[in-house]
Design a binder for these strands. Structure first.
Length: 485
DNA sequence: TTTTGAGTTGTTCGA
DNA sequence: GTCGAACAACTCAAA
């Protein structure tokens, strides 16, 4: 009997065993499997993970190591430049092949291409797969051969073209080689003193099992309310909350797609909410297309007209926004939810982002940066595309005059007030009528609710209609200068 | 090549 | 309170 050489599976943004094409290929190769995660250093242009993402990665790697151990395998941890790490490991183990699932950032793509060709030159098989998207960004093209720049046609084309491949089961047994390992704790991904992660631990279960449980719970019932409730931040089940799991690949979009379609086929899930929910998955895909063809999406205006936008610089206003002290309850509630749990309801993200870019007239990059650091689901494609969309500089741009009114939005989408009361408890006793605009209440109403503006809760840092007008003028002026230029 | 229809998420004002 | 109009013009996708 001949023993086959080991294969290396390089885990990156695909921290799961089920439906993982790279892992399946390595197992199918027949020899021992070296399951590797690299804490990467030394690649130019790779953006370091934010704090919240590091926290998540730490827990997700623990979970992955646990499931591998259950299958008789082992997660190998190494840090360094991935090319050096891979060649070291090939030397140690005699591996003859390396498998991974693709990623789509510019620096990462270039690094992977370089590594692939170096491996091939060295006589090592290197094969990459799609484990992260429904379709590769370059697969869906418009009639004239370009990539889609508008969501709706993209979504139509995706529905017409996409059929999920057969699901890949998680390997039951993974034969693995014994090799030296680094300790995850030494990577210090978990925050040190102060440890700010208690709210996150309470809110999340990182890892493949947590992802699966979240999906099943959502498809069990809440999904049928999705079309009506998805804009309700006061309801815990109004969204799937799968975003961080998707971000780290603890679940893949194809698994979600299959599960939703199966639910519809079995009559458990209604067509309409299923369609609306999957369209959100498609937005994720669309963001990846945009990033793939616009590597600078997180830095540069997609629409160059916005290079003329007269953004302000105002460190105090930025800090107030970050801390949830703008004096506009729905904005502050969102920013505090973000700080405490690493996540914010999508509707509130739009309101908070609109407030930063329009009311405060601060550059969208400042908000993108903050979200990158504080969101557990911070995704290079989605975060950048969404911020640009809100600012108006993105693909499929919003009309410049769309400025969210934080009071109207609060009354409309947090109609019970449950969201603001939860995250801004100092306002809990304000009557519904003034909950989203405490500054409009009479002094006596506030004092009865125990609210003193400027003391227990901030005065509004800008006056809504003046700030709105300032933003409209700035946007209009930007366009006119463009026309005249 | 030209034309046509359409485009996630809103607000305000005045009748 | 409700409703329609105005707030712009441009780019994209496809026929």
């Amino acid at each position: 009997m001949t023993s086959r050489p080991p294969s290396i599976v390089w885990f990156r943004e695909d921290l799961r065993l089920a439906d993982n094409p790279a892992l399946a290929a390595a197992v199918a190769a027949g020899g021992p499997v070296v399951c590797l995660f690299i804490l990467e250093t030394g690649i130019d242009g790779v953006r370091p993970l934010g704090g919240a993402s590091k926290w998540w990665l730490d827990k997700s790697l623990q979970a992955l190591a646990g499931s591998l151990a259950k299958a008789g395998g082992r997660l190998v941890l190494r840090n360094g430049h991935p090319k050096a790490v891979l060649f070291d490991l090939i030397g140690e183990t005699g591996a003859s092949s390396v498998f991974w699932n693709r990623r789509y950032g510019e620096a990462e793509k270039n690094a992977d291409a370089d590594i692939k060709s170096a491996l091939k030159d060295a006589g090592v098989t290197a094969q990459s797969f799609n484990g992260r998207l429904l379709m590769e960004p370059w697969e869906l093209k418009t009639g004239s051969g370009g990539y889609y720049r508008v969501f709706t046609p993209f979504w139509r084309a995706l529905q017409a073209a996409y059929a999920p491949p057969a699901a890949l089961e998680a390997p039951k047994r993974i034969e693995c080689a014994q090799i030296e390992n680094e300790r995850l704790a030494d990577w210090k991904l978990h925050p040190g003193a102060p440890d700010w992660s208690a709210g996150m631990s309470a809110a999340w279960t990182p890892g493949e099992a947590g992802a699966k449980a979240r999906l099943l719970a959502f498809l069990e019932g809440p999904v049928n309310q999705y079309a009506e409730d998805r804009n309700r931040p006061d309801l815990d089940t109004s969204s799937s909350q799968l975003s961080p799991h998707l971000r780290f690949g603890e679940i893949g979009p194809a698994q979600i797609w299959r599960a939703v379609k199966a639910g519809v086929a079995a009559g458990r899930i209604d067509e309409r909410p299923a369609h609306v929910f999957l369209s959100e998955i498609a937005w994720r895909e669309f963001s990846h297309v945009l990033l793939s063809f616009n590597p600078q999406l997180a830095q540069k205006n997609y629409n160059p007209n916005f290079d003329r936008m007269p953004w302000r610089r105002d460190a105090a206003a930025l800090t107030a926004w970050q801390r949830g002290e703008t004096g506009y309850p729905v904005v502050d509630a969102g920013m505090r939810q973000l700080w405490q749990t690493g996540w914010m309801h999508n509707r509130v993200r739009m309101i908070a982002a609109s407030f930063l870019t329009k009311h405060l007239l601060l550059p969208w990059q400042a908000g993108e940066d903050w979200f990158w650091d504080t969101l557990v689901d911070a995704d290079p494609a989605i975060n950048a595309a969404s911020w640009q969309w809100t600012a108006g500089s993105g693909a499929d741009a919003a009309p410049y005059f769309r400025v969210f009114n934080p009071m109207t939005q609060g009354n409309k989408f947090d109609e019970t007030g449950g969201y603001v009361r939860r995250w801004c408890p100092e306002l809990a006793k304000m009557p519904d009528k003034f909950l989203h605009a405490p500054f409009e209440a009479q002094e006596s109403v506030r004092s009865k609710a125990g609210v003193t503006l400027g003391l227990s809760y901030p005065e509004p840092i800008v006056e809504h209609s003046a700030a709105r007008q300032r933003a409209l003028d700035a946007y209009k002026q930007t366009r006119e200068e463009q026309g005249a230029a």
